[in-house]
């Protein structure tokens, strides 16, 4: 009885925090000022949000075929998510878009002042 309650609470925790992280990622995608920083915001919902939601649903599914399917979906997104993010970044880089570097700007400012 106690064991089932622990799993229930854990899956609640995972699913709720996972939804919070996807929401934060989406807010970041909307708020960040340019493309290169938006890449980072989008990868939040793709890593933390996805992992937490899938593991929360796995705990709900218990030991069954559902969990196996969820794990297959999770592993697939775990591998392809960063690959497609890299593909987008690489395509933008190849097309000639270069990120502006705050670090270089700060160094230059420090050197002149």
């Amino acid at each position: 009885m106690g064991w089932a309650l622990v799993i229930e609470i854990l899956s609640w925790l995972f699913i709720l925090s996972g939804s919070a992280f996807t929401l934060i990622g989406a807010i970041g995608t909307l708020r960040f000022p340019n493309f290169w920083s938006r890449l980072h915001a989008a990868s939040i919902s793709e890593s933390a949000g996805m992992i937490l939601l899938i593991s929360g649903m796995c705990l709900q599914g218990g030991i069954s075929l559902l969990t196996v399917k969820l794990l297959i979906i999770g592993t697939f997104i775990f591998i392809t998510g960063p690959t497609s993010t890299h593909a987008v970044a690489n395509a933008a880089h190849t097309s000639g878009a270069r990120p502006d570097s705050d670090e270089d700007a700060r160094k230059k400012q420090k050197g002149t002042s």
């Binding site: 989406a26 995608t29 493309f35 938006r38």
Partner: peptide
């Protein structure tokens, strides 16, 4: 690329 990123997300 913003749009492709949004579609992927």
């Amino acid at each position: 690329y913003d749009r492709v990123l949004a579609v992927n997300s």
